[in-house]
Structures are given as C-alpha cells and as structure tokens.
Design a protein around this nucleic acid. Structure first.
Lengths: 336, 336
DNA sequence: ATAATTGATGCAATCGGTTGCATTTGCATT
DNA sequence: AATGCAAATGCAACCGATTGCATCAATTAT
C-alpha cells in the first residue's frame, strides 16, 4: 500500500501538499491538485485512517458495548432497534460504529472503559445502566464524550441522556387498565437492579395510587426479561386464585408471552378473565392470538437522538449535556 | 492523557521499556516492571490503541457493512443473529467489530472498500453479495482478509465463504411438500439479483424435478423480502384459482406472513386448502395462527464460523480460504 | 518602480507507540 | 583475573499522516 510520500515523490511535490489535497481544507492550485490526484490514482493510494486519527486525535468512530447477558437479547426488538438508530445517525453524519461485546455487567463496564481509554472512539453511548455498578462515574472520569440511553443514576444527574418516558408510560398503562375496571393489577418487571425496571415500578405505583387501588406485594414480580420468567410469575402470583390479579403488565413482550402461556395452561382466558399488556411491541406481538396489546417504546428514535447528541458534542468539543424523554405509545390489540 | 514518555520519565526508564512492560512480550526485570506499573498508575496511563495500531499495522478490529436497504431488515431475525454471531466470536478472540452503515448495494460496496483501504479494520466480512455489483472483486484487489457470508459469485470461486445449504434445504422443503401430496408448489423468492435467491430457486427447481412435477412460470414470484411482496405474490399467483398453487414456499417469514394475509383475505384456509412454509424461523413464526412452518437457517452459527475463519487468517497472515456449508432445519408447525 | 499583499508550497516537528540492534550489567566458567 | 554469555535496558528510526510557520512567486496598490 502506498503512502502519502510515494504520491508526493511521483507528483514531485512535498508530502504536505498531498495531505492538503486529500484533506480538502487548504488552497491548492488546480494544476498541482490534478497532478497529485493523478499520481494517487496511479499508485492506488488511499490515506491511512489510523495515521490520520493519530495525528488529528479524532477517529470518526463512536463506541457502544452490547451486553449479551440473557438469551433473548438478540431476539427481542430492543437490540435491532438500538442498532438501527445508532447506525442510521452514524451513517448520516459520516461516523462508524465500534461495537464491543461483553460478558455481564461488570465486564460491560471494563470494555467501555477500554474503548475510551485507548482512544478507539471519540465518544460512547452507554446502554445499560445498573444501579449496582458505577459505570457512569468511571466513564466520566475519563472525560470522553458520553451519552446514556436510560436515566442516569442519581449521583450523575448531569450526564447527558435520552430515554423513554418509562415511568409516565407505565403509569398510563396502569390507569388504562384500571379504567377498564381492573382492580388487581400485577407488575412483572425484569431485572430489579436495572434502572428501567425501577422507573417502571414507580410508574406502576403511581398509576395504582392515582386510581386509588391497593397494591399487594405478591403482585409485583420480576421475570428477569425471559419468557420463562413470565411463566413463573404466573405461578407465583396465582397461589390464591380468589385474590389473584385480573390484569398483568409485563416489562417486555417475551415475559408477556410467558404469562400468556402460564394463564392458558391454567385454563384462564385472555382477555375474557384476565387482561395482559406487554412492552416493546415486538414483531410477534401482532401475531399472537389474542393479539398482544403492547407498549411501544421508541428505541430506534432514542438511539438516534442519543447519537446525534453525542456527535454534536464531539464536534463542538464539549461534553454532551441535557436530556430528552421520548414518548411511548400503547398499541391496543385484543389482549385487554 | 499521559503518554508512554511521561511514564518513562516518572519511572526513570526509557520509553521503550514502558512499551515492553505493556505489550508483554519481552524480558523485563520484576523491579523495573513494578516501577513502571506504579508510575503508570500514578499518571493514570493507558496505552493509546491508535498509535499502537499505526505502529504494528494491526487494529484488532474486523469490519462489517450492514445494509439498510429494506424496511424489515432490522426486524427480521437475520440481522440480530448475524450480529450475535459476529460479536460472540469477536469478543471471544479479543477483537472489536467496526460497523458501517450504507445506503443501497452500490454504497455498501463503497463503504466496505473504504474501511479496508483506509486500514480501519484487519479484515472484513461481507454479507450481501449481489450478482450485479462486483464487490468481491474490488475487495480482493486490496488483498485484505475477506470472508463472504453466502456463496461467492462464479468468478471468485476461491474466496473464503460460509453459507447455509440454501439449495439443498430448499430442495428438501419442496420434496417434503410434494410428499405431502402437493403438485402445484409456488416459490416466492425475494430479490432475484441476490445470490441466496438464486440458490433457493435452483433448489426449488431441483425439488420439483426430483418429485417429477412440472413448474409453471407464474408459480415463481419475487416478493422482495417484504410482507407486502408476499401479499402481492398471492394476487399474482392466483389469477386462475383452478390452476393456482396449493403450497407456497417463501424465502423469508415476512413474506410468508404477507402470503398468509393474502390467502386469508381470499377465504382460503391454511393449512386446509393451501400449505405454507416460510424461512428463518423468526420469533413471530411460532406465534402466528396457524403456527408457521419455517426453514430455520443457522445465521448465528454462520456468522460465527465466518468470523473464526477471518480471524484465523488474519492471525496467520494469510488470505482466508476454504468454505463451510451449514445445515438448515425445517421447523414443522401447523401451516402445512 | 517599489512596497505590500495574497496564494501556493515547502519544511520540520508532532501525534504515541514499537522494535531491531547495540550496549551495559551481572553472573558463571575456566 | 580474564572470558563468555545471557538478561535487561537504551537508542533511534519508523509507522503515515497533519499543521504552524517560513518562504517564494505573482499580483495589486501606491
């Protein structure tokens, strides 16, 4: 592979001239520009992006760590939508996306740090925030641009973030169910250490309070985002059929499907006897029978907004700031 | 951010010694190692990966271009599975994944070239191969390691590749349908310029021939991988109900869903009057009613195998070679 | 005709590591 | 005491661009 110096020799100019021709921002006479371009073509020259990055201290790359902590992760619509949003904006703005895998929360933290500390990316979007690992704090110490998808933990309230209105949206779902006449509503949440789940739980409690309904502790269950978790939640919440919930809100569709299966096995009709609302509006939600009502969370838009925010900040040379809350929307189908 | 020279000064050694401590492969006395490590800790030093890459001419990164050419792309299970396979192996082997977006086939080609030519990645996995754009040829001229997911075009038979046994698998599905008594079987294919579709079509023809069945040209339709394409395929193939197909094979589940909708609107019962087999075993396939029989293509395993092959070659300093064909498996549900 | 200005290009230091080769040091051999 | 050897470290060139400053030529202003 030829370098800028080879081209310079061939075109009989100084390497810096070649550099200027390729990086655009400089005055070059049309004659030499042509000569350089011609030489470059002959030698099949392409500037080396790594060398350029070293020199300008910019990689035109943003990083993201994707956790593969539970099995359904890649199947659920969260991941594809996230990627779609990230890629869409990266592409639009001339960036690439550097994706690192990781193996559990602790490791996610390590990987993210590594990408930033070693300057492989100009900034990073952080997706999962766990309350028990201070990823955000560590990351900020490096002061590399950072945008969070999800709410920031309390001690980092000033970090930039974009999220769905989980709390409000969940409250609305509960109010909607209450308004349909349900008085015993269960919440099946996912991993209780994640902040999304905490927000949703707050929304649930808000909604119940708003509707003037009592909450039984056994109506709150964590299905850990997996289908089987939903299935088991049914078992746990229906020990006593007389006081069992008449409606379920599940924090993702996978769990909702598990709940549906659990109910069906007990001969409970949905929506006849029990109503069910899922979250994410996964592709399968529409095709279940009964069609699953689901809270559609605008993940793609969230990822896109976060990426814009990040790139804006990178290009201004500032730390990203501010936040956005995007609205979710309940898709009504037959399960209520 | 501190550099290797700062650490060297602090530890009173030569920069090259610091380098050796961090890159591991050299003999360093335990005493100086400790001194260097200590200095590094004090200065919060992390080696700069970009500088390292420039020097060693390796990025520990592999590239992939993901096309967002049609809408269902991110929803279909192909994309998440592909990413899962790529990431799994990259992570395992200490690589990162550089993802570039693109906008159509021509551009995919350009982006891939760019990643390689500018040395942003040590190798690349190419996913879509179109017969009308010689991406592979261009890419090979750069002789950077390259593995294809899918069959190579005829003129590049020696490039490394990994694929599903599309032709055989499709043939088997046709034989299976024929064996169930179907004599008029339709093929709804997707983009006819893509090589997958060509392979599937060959498999279809093989299967029909094998079963001694005639093929009518109007039974072959291209739904362009979208649900609506499937829907329209029903219209096109059922102008004359008397000679219309009694079974459909669709090259993805989205199209199968479209076909299902088309048939339902015409009051045709599945599987009572017409049978249907989709491809990919998307999450929704199981939850349709009737449950959609679907050919499960092991995309995740394919991506994983391709990545292994690529990294093996990179680390040996060779061009990847050879190929693998992974078996698909028909998941039987109620739609047949 | 001379000075001042502008435009185009060259020069050389720099970005932050790596690595082949040379040198020094410490220790074992004879 | 002299020699040989290996382990540890230093030296300096290099990876391939970028960029502030200097220089020189060609215009323009006076």
């Amino acid at each position: 592979m030829s370098t800028i110096r080879d081209v310079a020799a061939q075109a009989e100019v100084h390497p810096s001239t070649v550099s200027r021709v390729f990086s655009g921002n400089a005055q070059i006479s049309e004659a030499t520009r042509q000569r350089v371009l011609e030489a470059a073509r002959e030698l099949n020259f392409q500037p080396n992006a790594i060398a350029r990055s070293l020199s300008v201290r910019r990689t035109k790359t943003i990083g993201v760590i994707v956790p593969h902590v539970f099995d359904g992760y890649f199947a659920d619509s969260f991941f594809p939508q996230l990627m779609a949003g990230l890629l869409e904006v990266c592409y639009e703005r001339g960036y690439r996306l550097l994706v690192g895998g990781c193996d559990g929360y602790q490791d996610e933290h390590i990987q993210a740090l590594d990408i930033l500390a070693t300057r492989q990316a100009d900034g990073i979007v952080v997706t999962s925030s766990r309350l028990d690992v201070d990823t955000v704090g560590e990351l900020r110490r490096h002061n590399t641009p950072l945008v969070l998808i999800g709410h920031p933990p309390a001690q980092h309230a000033d970090v930039a973030w974009v999220d769905a209105d989980n709390r409000t949206a969940t409250r609305r779902v509960i109010e909607y169910l209450a308004q349909k006449g349900h008085r015993r509503i269960a919440y099946v949440g996912g991993d209780p250490d994640s902040s999304v789940v905490k927000e949703r739980l707050e929304g649930y409690l808000d909604g119940m309070a708003q509707a003037g309904l009592d909450v039984q502790p056994e109506w709150i269950d964590y299905g850990y985002f997996a289908e089987d978790g939903g299935y088991q939640a049914v078992e746990r919440t229906r020990r006593d059929e007389a006081s069992a919930p008449t409606a379920y809100y599940a924090a993702n569709d996978l769990m909702a499907i598990g709940i549906l299966r659990g109910l069906r096995e007990r001969g409970i009709d949905v929506p006849g006897q029990v109503s069910l609302v899922g979250t994410n509006d996964s592709p399968e939600a529409a095709h279940l029978s009964p069609g699953l009502s689901s809270l559609r969370v605008p993940y793609r838009a969230i990822a896109a907004a976060a990426t814009h925010r990040l790139i804006d900040a990178i290009e201004k040379g500032e730390q990203p700031a501010g936040h956005e809350l995007l609205e979710s929307c309940l898709i009504e189908r037959e399960s209520v």
